[in-house]
Design a protein around this nucleic acid. Structure first.
Lengths: 207, 207
DNA sequence: CCTAGGTTACCTACCGGTCGGTAGTGTCGT
DNA sequence: ACGACACTACCGACCGGTAGGTAACCTAGG
């Protein structure tokens, strides 16, 4: 806890964190050297080891910051009342908007999530992932109970919803030219509600 | 191209490739040393440099093998005729089965795709991704033309379908305990056809 | 006796981490 | 009011270890 920092200057710790996330995103954990991180922050190596225990600790600090930010976003995107259709659309679109503003961070999380450990310490993604699932399946269960949604397996329904959100984000990151944006997400959600089968047709597979 | 190899023995080159993919998957490109690769293959370092130009070349060789295998799987999973419902289900379920048999490879591809370059050369994923998209959107367009599918934006429909397949796979990899398997995929596809809204209800959002 | 397919031994560059040192700011006994 | 001392926040130099890569040498088959 620095007693005083030269005014109008970003703290060394913050600069180290910024430099680290930029480099970890661009090159990965192992391929990023401590030297590069401190160089990007305009300090020297011992300054990093003064503020953090190790290179791993820097990495974990970034992940923890990101995790608590994400928790916050999920919590404030949650729509607790109203028609299920609107609650679902509100929740998913708000999340998508948050994603659009933090693409670089989401890309970093994706890389860490799918990437190999690389010598970096493991991180508990399941917990964070569950928070999303919990909010969504809450809305789905409400919808089935109230008769607004079809009486199907709620897990299947949650999966479809998560899948659509997740894939819309992934597509935007991976193939920006194919991304559909939040309006596309709305259209797709509409499709999901109505079904892709032509109306008035038998949709069952003949047995 | 070895003229003769001690019989009943896998070629050194193949063993190097096997060892490399195992280690790259477990630890990542940068965190895997050439020493570890050759140790896993039971040879020495210069043997690797005899068969490959560099560490990067080993990595690219793996990616190319995987890419051509994947092309093959997509090609033979393609269902070109029959009711659209069955074509879609056939194609997606066959792909999912192939995925279930090669989870480790898919995980590796995911890691490479989302992960940072790590000093490894870039790889053209878009082309491979497009092959999937092409087959799916072909079926979708046929379905809309024949009246079997709702007259909606074919891109949106393709996205929903891809999203469901992709997320089902991702979930299986990331949270095996939540994976729904190919039967789950079939149920979800059924849901997609019928829509998640309760039958007989207004599904439009009131304007 | 040459060449394909290796091996042993070694190079240089760079890695994460730590050393001893210090400028600047508080704090406190007198 | 002031010197003694402590603490925070860093720096330059350097550590042992390991990375990718290579030069030179061996050895079996044709």
């Amino acid at each position: 806890m620095p007693v005083r920092v030269a005014s109008a200057e970003v703290s060394v710790k913050k600069r180290l964190l910024d430099s680290a996330i930029r480099l970890f995103t661009a090159r990965g954990y192992t391929a990023t050297s401590v030297r590069e991180i401190v160089e990007g922050a305009g300090v020297t190596k011992p300054a990093l080891y003064y503020h953090f225990e190790s290179k791993e600790a820097v990495y974990l600090a970034i992940l923890n910051d990101l995790a608590s930010y994400t928790d916050e976003v999920i919590a404030r995107s949650r729509v607790a009342s109203g028609p299920v259709r609107e609650r679902l659309e509100g929740f998913l679109v708000t999340l998508f908007e948050a994603f659009e503003e933090k693409k670089a961070d989401v890309r970093f999380i994706n890389a860490v999530f799918w990437g190999p450990p690389q010598g970096a310490p493991p991180f508990d993604f399941a917990t964070f992932h569950n928070k999303l699932l919990v909010v969504l399946s809450e809305i789905v269960r409400d919808g089935i109970a109230s008769g607004e949604l079809r009486a199907a397996d709620p897990n299947d329904m949650t999966l479809v919803l998560m899948g659509v959100l997740s894939f819309t984000m992934d597509l935007t990151l991976a193939r920006p030219e194919l991304g559909v944006g939040k309006d596309g997400l709305r259209r797709v959600l509409d499709l999901l509600f109505k079904g892709i089968a032509a109306p008035g047709r038998r949709t069952e597979k003949p047995k």
